[in-house]
């Protein structure tokens, strides 16, 4: 399913919730909407699902323009709303069976999915006794029930423990490998960093930046951090002098508790990284350890938000 959101504008009264947002959802890719609360992530998802009527713009589905996902296309949709709660007095199995009936699936599919999301043991219990994480797993199960071509997950990591997160990563990877489309929103970019193919940063209803994680890192140009451990004072002095002479890096020096090792923490522009590494490589053999850390996507995101403030 090829889906494009084209120049979507939504107003709630005087509030501009989305100010002309365009986004392509590629099949076989995980697209992540990121932004602070109130940025317009859920509203954009709502427009896609046909839950929110845009004031202008349209949703293109396989080349045809619509106000939102048309009813027939919703057969191929799986959706997890943010902080979903379900009816307290139904059991997990009853909730799942409602959705299997609604989607025309077999009863056994409900049980299979409950097992898949780790709720087989708790399936007979009323949802009121579920923890937040269990409710989120149930919601995730409902979303993947019909193996939809388009999976829309609003803040899917909320309340999930490590096992739940592993389950989510597995699902994302399965959907990507099967060439299906995934759109998810989060404000915890660090958590989702390695699973995102395309990121769209929203702020106050506007797209601040979008692209692949590498592209965003490049565009923002945050420095790369290099940590070097050296146990020879003379070597430290020489290395620092060399780096500062070329203006290649900001260097901070720290000493170990036992006083034997010196830690150099350098920050350099991504374009200068190779040159800095060559200099470090050319230093005397007293270099004990070398680590290079790229800026995290959360740093990139924070920088983007700083720019908008």
């Amino acid at each position: 399913m090829k889906v494009q959101l084209c120049d979507i504008q939504v107003r709630f009264g005087h509030l501009l919730a989305l100010g002309g947002v365009s986004l392509d959802l590629r099949a076989g890719a995980v697209t992540v909407l990121v932004g602070p609360n109130g940025a317009g992530k859920s509203t954009l998802m709502g427009v896609l699902l046909g839950l929110v009527r845009p004031d202008s713009g349209h949703v293109m589905v396989d080349g045809r323009p619509h106000q939102g996902l048309p009813r027939m296309e919703r057969e191929k949709l799986g959706y997890l709303p943010e902080a979903v709660a379900f009816a307290d007095n139904l059991s997990g199995r009853q909730v799942m069976r409602f959705f299997t009936r609604a989607r025309g699936l077999s009863r056994s599919r409900a049980d299979a999915v409950l097992s898949r999301v780790g709720l087989a043991q708790a399936a007979g219990r009323a949802v009121r006794g579920y923890s937040r994480g269990m409710r989120q797993r149930l919601g995730l199960g409902v979303a993947i029930l019909s193996e939809p071509a388009l999976l829309v997950l609003d803040e899917p990591t909320g309340g999930l423990d490590q096992q739940g997160l592993t389950l989510l990563w597995e699902i994302l990877s399965e959907w990507r490998e099967a060439g299906r489309t995934v759109l998810l929103s989060t404000h915890d970019l660090a958590l989702i960093e390695r699973r995102a193919d395309h990121i769209c940063v929203l702020h106050d209803g506007l797209v601040q930046a979008q692209g692949s994680p590498d592209q965003l890192r490049r565009d923002v140009g945050l420095p790369v951090q290099i940590s070097v451990t050296i146990d020879d004072d003379a070597a430290v002095g020489a290395l620092v002098a060399q780096l500062q002479r070329g203006g290649l890096a900001d260097v901070q020096i720290a000493t170990d508790i036992d006083g034997r090792h010196r830690h150099l923490v350098m920050e350099t522009a991504p374009d200068d990284l190779l040159q800095v590494l060559r200099i470090v490589d050319g230093a005397p053999s007293s270099v004990r350890d070398l680590r290079v850390a790229e800026p995290g996507l959360d740093d990139v995101y924070e920088r983007l938000l700083e720019v908008t403030r």
Binding site: R74, L80, P81, E82, A85, F86, A102, R103, V152
Partner: peptide, 13 residues
């Protein structure tokens, strides 16, 4: 309030 209205309306109905 349970955030399930959107989920219901996202079904083909």
């Amino acid at each position: 309030e349970r955030n399930t209205l959107g989920l219901l309306l996202s079904l083909p109905v």
